[in-house]
Simulated assay, not measured.
Amino acid sequence: MGVTDVTTEPNAPWLIVGLGNPGPEYAMNRHNVGFMVADLLAGRMGAKFKRAGKAQAQVVEGRIGPPGPLSRRVVLAKPMSYMNLSGGPVTALRDFYKVPTAHVVAVHDELDIDYGVLRLKLGGGDNGHNGLKSMTKAMGAEYHRVRFGIGRPPGRMQVADFVLKDFGSAERKELDYFVDRAADAVECLVAEGLERAQSAYNS
């Protein structure tokens, strides 16, 4: 099955997935920036996450975008299965809410981009990211990604150690701004399309 053109299904809902690990010990990890963006989007919608029935995830249902023709029906989701098993809950939610795969957006940390820089795209590889790897295995690769740069580990630090550490004190000074900008990028992607969002936010 090829990529679904967003313009052919303007009324189809969107599934916005913040990737991360559940539990307070992971809350400020670099690997959890997807959860941070999802939480901010939920706050903008004036809603709180709740358990999603049988799916191993928390969800918020609502709308994104300005009132009128650019408003889009969305489901925000945070898989509660741990990062490397994200594909199961995401696919279950996609099927339950009847979301085209091209209307799925994964918000995730990205090692090969400098801290705070955003890159939006449709499809592509997983670049070693276990959350993306699980999602792609479960439903194919043709979903959108909002990639939030966290940079490479310093010195000889292992990647797994780096992503599971909290953002450093210098990073935290700008973290709220960068998370806010990533949430703006998600809203732009959903309401106005990938090309417009890339032009505005692929810094």
Rank of each mutant, 00 (worst) to 15 (best):
P154C: 07
R119K: 15
L93Y: 06
M1G: 14
G155H: 00
D126K: 02
E174K: 05
P153T: 03
T7R: 07
F96K: 11
V107H: 00
G43L: 01
V37D: 01
M83N: 11
S199P: 11
S203Q: 12
T101H: 08
E195S: 14
Q58N: 15
V59M: 10
K121A: 00
V104P: 08
R196S: 07
S86A: 08
R44K: 15
R156P: 02
A197W: 06
G155S: 06
L15K: 03
N127K: 15
N127L: 08
V17N: 07
H144V: 09
D166N: 12
I16C: 09
Y97R: 10
M45D: 08
A200R: 13
L85A: 14
T8Q: 12
V60A: 00
V117E: 06
K54Q: 13
L93A: 10
P69K: 11
G151Q: 02
R94E: 12
F178S: 06
V99L: 12
P153F: 04
M36I: 00
K173G: 04
T136G: 14
D161S: 08
G155K: 02
V190C: 09
G125S: 09
P10N: 01
V159M: 11
L40R: 15
D180E: 08
R44Y: 01
G43Y: 02
P13W: 11
Q198W: 08
G53L: 05
V74G: 09
R44T: 10
V190S: 11
L122I: 13
R94F: 01
G131M: 09
L122N: 07
M139F: 11
D161G: 13
G124M: 09
F96Q: 04
G46Y: 04
V107W: 01
V117D: 11
R172I: 04
P100D: 05
D161V: 04
A183R: 07
R63D: 06
L40H: 05
I150A: 06
L189I: 13
A141S: 12
Y97Q: 04
H103G: 14
P100N: 09
C188A: 13
K173P: 02
G23I: 01
A102K: 04
E110C: 02
L120V: 05
D161Q: 14
F167I: 10
I113P: 01
